[in-house]
Simulated assay, not measured.
Amino acid sequence: MKRVSSPNVFSTTATTTLLTSPYRPPDKGNCRSNNVKVMGNKKAGVHGNVADYHVFNGGVHSGKPSFMKWTLNDVVNVVRSHRIPCVFAVGLVFFMYVEYTIRMVPHSSPPLDWGFLLTRSFHRALASRPLLNTVLAALNTVFVLMQTVYIVWAWVIEGRPRATISALFMFTCRGILGCSTQLPLPQEFLGSGVDFPVGNVSFFLFFSGHVAGAVIASLDMRRMQRRGMAWLFDILNVLQSLRLLATRGHYTIDLAVGLGAGILFDFLAGKYEQSKTTKTSTFSRSMKEIC
């Protein structure tokens, strides 16, 4: 019987006892693993209470269900220490009520979009002033070109491909989703020959590549401590979103998902880069050992 020290699941160091021989990886041939039982000493749990825990083959098991150890102080501490999840819990209950009582939009009616309702006056101004609509569309196209130039510049000139990889991930996923569900063009859509994509061609509504591309560029700027440029892109992105709603070029959900998509694919591109860097480092070390 051998005693070793290992970190437990609560980020503290505990002395554990291996009741069988030291653990070996499972046999790939028959997919069997050693029956290893690791017993830990008493430690404070998530809610501050003390409990014994046992680890069986990598899983955590406690003698009693967690909720049976909760006290009134635990509940109070959850509300004090985890306010954001508590707010989300209230939101869950509220929107469950809204979902089960809301009136569905008839199939003969256009979609209900609060972004369209909030930008009605802006929409009327653009509809009555075609020149203003064209000028704003041209400025928006310039902003899209700014995003593109920055993302390509970061790769080609500065040698940092993360933003480019993120954009490739994002636009590919956008194309798949855009083909999977083709939303109807809003009835009050105000097109322009200078809007991106230029030429009044067809485009995917879900989700907004305009917004996602700006988010990807802004996140890269922040990584490089170019905070002034990042804030400029964020402000232009907000103005762009207002214009897209006013011209009915996108639904509100397209813009919201575009924001999340930019963050998500930037994160995934970072993970991709990290995996490649790790593999390259491992390969380099192996070659040095061989030489």
Rank of each mutant, 00 (worst) to 15 (best):
R160F: 04
N133G: 13
L168D: 00
P110T: 06
V79M: 15
N73A: 11
H61C: 10
Y100D: 05
L168M: 15
F171Y: 06
F56K: 08
W114C: 04
V156Q: 02
R129T: 15
T119Q: 02
G63I: 13
V105W: 03
R120T: 10
S108M: 12
V149N: 02
H61K: 07
Q147C: 08
V156Y: 06
L92Q: 06
F169V: 04
L117C: 03
M170G: 00
A167R: 02
C86Q: 03
H107S: 14
F88L: 15
R83V: 03
N77Y: 08
R162Y: 03
L131R: 13
M104L: 15
Q147N: 14
V78R: 09
F171S: 09
C86L: 08
D74N: 07
V55R: 09
L118N: 08
R124T: 07
N77D: 10
R103I: 03
S81E: 14
F143P: 00
V78A: 12
V135H: 07
F116I: 13
N77K: 05
S108I: 14
Y100M: 14
F95P: 00
I151H: 06
L145A: 12
L131V: 05
M104W: 04
R129D: 14
F94K: 06
Y150P: 05
V60L: 14
A167G: 03
L139Y: 06
V78M: 13
S109V: 10
I165G: 00
N57M: 08
V156L: 07
L118M: 10
F95T: 14
P65M: 11
V55S: 13
G59E: 10
G63C: 03
M104Y: 12
T141W: 05
V87Q: 06
I84Y: 10
F122E: 07
S62N: 03
D74G: 01
R120L: 05
M146A: 06
Y100G: 01
N73M: 12
A127K: 12
V75S: 04
A167N: 09
I102G: 00
L168Y: 07
R120C: 08
S66M: 13
